[in-house]
C-alpha cells in the first residue's frame, strides 16, 4: 500500500490544479477565521462560529478536488496505464481514498493552525486573546475530519461517474437540492443521515442543523457514506472496462 500511496503523492504533486484548489481552500479558511476571530472577538463572537463560516465552501472545494483526483485520470487516458500498473481496482481505490483523507486532514490542519497563530497575533494587538474551550476543540476536530472525509467521498463519487463535470454536478445537486427536499418533504430523521447534513453536523458550530446531535456520530455517518460509495465505485470499476 505504501508504494501505491507514493504513486498517488507523485500524481498529486506533479500537476498544478490540486495545489490551486488546496491553496484556495486554505486561503478561505485563513481569511474568514482571522477576520472572525481577530476582529469579531472584540464583539464577543465565538471563534468556533468564525471557523464554521468557511465550512460549506471548503467542503464543496474538497469534494470537487476528490472527484478530480480520479476523474482526471479518465479524462486524460492515464487510467489505462494506472490499471496496468495496479490491476487490483479495490487496492487502487483504497489507496486513493487513504491519500485523499490525508490531503484533506493535512490541508485543514495547516489552514486552521496557521490562521489561529495569525489571528492570535492580531487579537493580541487589540488587547484580547482567543478563548479556547471544549466547543472550539470539538469544532476543529469535526472540521478536520470532515475535510479528510470530503476528499475521500469525492474520490468515491468520481470512481462512479468517471467524469469530472458529472461528478461535481451530482455532488452539488445532492448537497443543495436533494438533501433539502428530503429533509423538507420526507422526514427530518432521514435527512439528518444524508451525507452533507452529516458533514455539517460533524462541525458543532455550523449553522446548518441536523438530527445528529453528537458530532462524532455525524463524522461516522459521513465516513460511512464515503466508504459505501467507494464500495459501489469499486464494484462498478471492476465490471466496466476502462
Amino acid at each position: 500500500m505504501s508504494a501505491l500511496l507514493r504513486g498517488e503523492w507523485i500524481k498529486f504533486r506533479s500537476v498544478r490544479s490540486p495545489w490551486v484548489m488546496i491553496a484556495v481552500a486554505v486561503a478561505v479558511v485563513v481569511a474568514l477565521l482571522i477576520a472572525g476571530i481577530a476582529v469579531d472577538s472584540s464583539k464577543g463572537r465565538d471563534p468556533a462560529e468564525s471557523l464554521a463560516v468557511s465550512s460549506t465552501f471548503v467542503i464543496v472545494l474538497l469534494l470537487v478536488l476528490g472527484v478530480q483526483l480520479i476523474a482526471q485520470e479518465y479524462r486524460f487516458g492515464t487510467i489505462r496505464a494506472t490499471f496496468t500498473s495496479v490491476p487490483d481496482c479495490s487496492r487502487l481505490i483504497l489507496a486513493k481514498m487513504i491519500f485523499g483523507v490525508a490531503v484533506g486532514l493535512v490541508s485543514a490542519l495547516i489552514a486552521i493552525a496557521g490562521s489561529f497563530v495569525v489571528a492570535s497575533i492580531v487579537a493580541n494587538s487589540y488587547g484580547h486573546s482567543i478563548p479556547i474551550d471544549a466547543r472550539l476543540v470539538e469544532t476543529v476536530s469535526g472540521y478536520v475530519l470532515a475535510a479528510g472525509i470530503s476528499v475521500a467521498l469525492g474520490i468515491a463519487v468520481g470512481s462512479i461517474t468517471r467524469n469530472s463535470a458529472l461528478g461535481i454536478t451530482a455532488v452539488l445537486l445532492d448537497m443543495f437540492v436533494l438533501e433539502s427536499l428530503v429533509t423538507v418533504f420526507a422526514s427530518e430523521g432521514l435527512g439528518s443521515v444524508l451525507p452533507f447534513r452529516a458533514a455539517f453536523a460533524s462541525i458543532p458550530a455550523t449553522s446548518i442543523r441536523s438530527g445528529l446531535s453528537l458530532w462524532f456520530v455525524a463524522v461516522l455517518v459521513y465516513a460511512a457514506w464515503a466508504v459505501g460509495l467507494a464500495v459501489i465505485g469499486t464494484v462498478i470499476v471492476e465490471r466496466r472496462d476502462p
Partner: peptide, 25 residues
C-alpha cells in the same frame, strides 16, 4: 505494455509521468 501513448496528463512532465508508475511497482 504500450497501448495508448497519448494517455498522458498534458501538464505533467515526462519524468513525473514515469515516476508515478515506477513508484506503484
Amino acid at each position: 505494455a504500450l497501448l495508448d501513448a497519448e494517455g498522458v496528463h498534458p501538464r505533467r512532465s515526462a519524468r513525473n509521468h514515469l515516476a508515478m508508475f515506477a513508484a506503484t511497482n
